[in-house]
Design a protein around this nucleic acid. Structure first.
Lengths: 336, 336
DNA sequence: TTGTAGGCGTTATCAA
DNA sequence: TTGATAACGCCTACAA
């Protein structure tokens, strides 16, 4: 009874494989007693229909790929929770992949996915300044894709993002209201989607309050933690900002480290606010003001959009773009 | 050219399906030119052999399930990173599942996995005080399992844990050395594996220093954040500890919240140390002393153990138990 | 070096 | 209500 399958069950119960199969698929064309007899036998022998064989027949994998830049990050972890929640209800499995923000990993993984491994893909992208042709190939295979948070503008798929422009504007305005006149903008790449949109909100807020834009205050950082430390340290020494608007949690935390080491008094000498979904932001020293994105809901919505497409199966092919609202939490790091 | 497969390629290239197949499997029995011609054609048409069909033939899924209590937690997130690292090198996919520490979810997911969906399972368990028969069923199907961090003692599988007893002992001793005489032990369930072992280290350290054990200082908490807040608040008011040794990060953070609200001065009136893999522990207010488990390495090791079993395929079936070392980071929360 | 053929486990169609 | 059969896409003996 090592390798059990419906054929063996059929023999044992003196039935045909079709009948066994029907028992597992809620088919109405089966006698209730027969079904129960089969299910009981299956349960006793710990049998479930082989997923790969079913998939081969049905061309449905009930599996979905989730691709994110990192996992050790409350934003993405919560988003995954949301996706998982919806997927579980639909009986779907989740294939997880992390890119470390390395474009090549994203390409390589997605290319693999062209083998029918998954029914759909939910992702937060990592390589905006590149050729995104590999994503279009998924279309050929009818594998729907949904982007969340970090998206490629040039790819027409459903998207879930947040009101980045507005919240960046408010955050910057908040710093100005707190008396900041030299607000620095920390960003990983100022030229691409999120960095660009958030930067626009920042600049427009400055303009509204008649503060001249100084491009030395735009601090372009990297993926490397150590480099960032140095970059930020130099910026604080040379450009002497009195406020920091960080587009990425990681950079705000790096700033905290620098301030600790340089004994810069936050918020008295430097006010900080950052995009962040860190649930312990209130416990930091000082508590960090955050623009918090609804990470969990974004995951939920992204998954729902994907399932919509999966269930429409090619019919209504218009892509949706949902924009959820972030929330400002003003804490001590930005207000005395 | 919508649904391409090796048969179609065979026709187009006037070859047989076996030759096409060989081109993709690094078979030596194929002319180099033929292979290249095939691969070029495949690339152009964006073809990869269907994963489910191959699996059905080979009975290998190249997929591995990872089951953890939570994802929004630096310990598990880092462990997943480690697992993923190894899996990626082996060309394996990762199926992620989160139990929210709910035993039923664990059972339900594992039961599903009996359908040949994965080759192996790596998990940190959620239901210690229960019947674990559902795990033994995996053995029948020759699906190896590896536990990490949270394990079932009564199940004989490979395990990766840390030196919980020793580090609990040291942590408690450290608090005593800092002058604490009423050290409380925060735990989720004092009667099961991790809670028990860590509790033993705590008690033995007290004994060594001739401090009488007071069971009112063992604070048994729950899964619910709000409840925990109340439990800890009551404990601080009534039992008045001067030190906290927390077996779980979450409880230490709850204590921080309570202390903030009750205006308890940490570390002057209460010293805190906790198991935690939070990478921003140094940025908390005050910086949190931690017993930090090598989460990433644990993930690596767990995955390596699993692959060993997968590659041995039934031969040497002795299970291994690796014990890695945690590290104490003394910060301001526990030392003046 | 290439081709033929059977089967992996399941399900849908059709017939009984 | 049940059974026989073909097919999903691939791989591997074995034959050529």
């Amino acid at each position: 009874m090592d390798n059990i399958n419906i054929k063996i069950i059929a023999e044992k119960l003196k039935l045909s494989t079709s009948t066994i199969s029907r028992a597992f698929n809620g088919s109405p064309d089966i006698n209730k007693d027969t079904r129960e007899r089969i299910l009981a036998f299956a349960k006793e022998h710990n049998f479930l229909p082989n997923h790969y064989a079913s998939n081969l027949r049905d061309k449905k994998t009930k599996t979905l790929a989730v691709i994110v830049p990192e996992i050790v990050n409350d934003f993405f972890a919560q988003a995954i929770n949301g996706i998982e929640e919806v997927a579980r209800k639909k009986g779907f499995y989740i294939l997880l992949y992390r890119t470390d923000d390395i474009f090549e990993k994203e390409v390589s993984f997605i290319s693999y996915l062209n083998n029918g491994k998954v029914d759909g893909i939910i992702m937060s992208v990592s390589g905006e300044a590149n050729d995104h042709n590999y994503i279009k190939k998924l279309e050929q295979k009818h594998i729907p894709v949904v982007f969340f948070d970090r998206v490629y503008e040039d790819i027409d798929v459903s998207k879930v993002t947040t009101n980045d422009y507005e919240s960046s504007f408010s955050a910057t305005e908040h710093l100005i209201a707190q008396g900041c006149r030299r607000v620095a903008y920390l960003v990983i790449n100022k030229n691409i989607s999120i960095g660009k949109v958030r930067g626009q909100g920042y600049m427009d807020a400055l303009a509204k309050h008649h503060i001249a834009f100084d491009d030395r205050l735009v601090i372009d950082c990297s993926q490397d933690e150590n480099e960032n430390y140095t970059i930020i340290q130099n910026a604080l020494e040379r450009v002497k900002p009195d406020g920091i608007f960080s587009s990425v949690e990681r950079l705000a935390l790096a700033t905290y480290h620098v301030c600790n080491d340089m004994k810069i008094d936050v918020p008295n000498n430097l006010k900080i606010i950052s995009f962040s979904s860190l649930h312990i932001a209130p416990l930091l020293c000082p508590p960090l003001s955050t623009i918090t994105q609804p990470a969990y809901e974004m995951g939920i919505k992204a998954a729902e959009l994907l399932f919509e497409e999966l269930e429409n199966k090619g019919l209504d092919s218009t892509k949706k773009h949902l924009v959820l609202e972030s929330k400002l939490f003003i804490r001590r790091s930005s207000s005395v």
